[in-house]
């Protein structure tokens, strides 16, 4: 790791102020991605602003027809939250499948989506549930938030405060894990709710999470595994490496979508 200054603000306002002052700051939430990156000397921030101790960012609130989750809420907290489990079991399941137990004790919702790793799970939930991402500056629709591999709509100095997940009528997440890294090689989140039907795919796309319109249309007509069984996403734009060809991953999108719909029925 290169040297950096470390700050652990207690409030969001302090965090914003520190971010504004620093040359080239990085926000540390749970650190489960940032710290490995720093260890490999792939990043050289001047300042690391640790928002993991900001209490106002660590909460889960069920209000009306949505669950609000603070950005610094740990995956394990989401996975075991009675509110999330009750209103949005697919989201609780997804959080409980991220990384491993120790990673889930540290990793946070905000950290995951701000990083937008193409193999991360939460982006699929955000996109698949028409989530609203509230930042220190504005509200961003999930559809607008994820802009490409490791790219988001976040601007410099903008911190995610919370994410609003509306309750789905039906939803499920199915993940095919990369055998080595255990990240999502293909993860498919399907849902039905006030927003209609959504099918969001993570892990597979070269540009990160994406929606499959053809599957959404088919499921809107008939919510059944058979409805998506014959819909193939094109292999173009799908990752290909030693763990599997683009064709294989594209095929897995269909298989996982089918299984997710079955699980959500």
């Amino acid at each position: 790791m290169y040297q950096f200054n470390y700050e652990r603000p207690k409030t969001l306002a302090d965090a914003e102020a520190l971010l504004g002052k620093a040359d080239d700051p990085k926000i540390l939430a749970g650190g489960q991605t940032l710290i490995p990156t720093l260890k490999q000397r792939l990043a050289m921030p001047s300042d690391v602003i640790d928002i993991g101790g900001i209490k106002e960012l660590d909460f889960i609130r069920a209000e009306g027809d949505a669950v609000m989750i603070g950005a610094a809420t740990r995956h394990a907290t989401v996975a075991t939250s009675p509110d999330v489990r009750k209103h949005n079991p697919a989201l609780a399941d997804l959080a409980g499948w991220i990384g491993d137990p120790a990673v889930r004790h540290m990793g946070t919702l905000g950290g995951s989506i701000a990083n937008n790793d193409p193999a991360a799970d939460y982006p699929a939930a955000c996109l698949g549930l028409d989530a609203k991402i509230h930042t220190t500056k504005r509200l961003i629709e999930a559809d607008e938030f994820f802009t490409g591999m490791f790219e988001t709509a976040l601007q410099d100095g903008e911190i995610i405060k919370e994410v609003t997940f509306p309750h789905p009528e039906k939803a499920a997440y199915m993940k095919f894990r990369n055998p080595a890294s255990r990240y999502a090689m293909v993860g498919v989140f399907v849902s039905k709710g006030p927003w209609g039907v959504r099918v969001a795919v993570t892990g597979a796309g070269q540009n990160g999470v994406f929606r499959v319109a053809e599957m959404e249309e088919a499921l809107a007509k008939s919510w059944s595994p058979d409805a998506v069984a014959n819909i193939k996403v094109p292999a173009k734009g799908i990752n290909s490496d030693l763990h599997g060809s683009a064709e294989y991953r594209a095929h897995l999108v269909t298989v996982m979508a089918k299984r997710a719909v079955a699980a959500a029925s």
Partner: peptide, 11 residues
């Protein structure tokens, strides 16, 4: 349980 190799002492 946490991975102490993926956490700063300061955290």
């Amino acid at each position: 349980a946490v991975k102490s190799c993926t956490m700063l002492a300061a955290q």
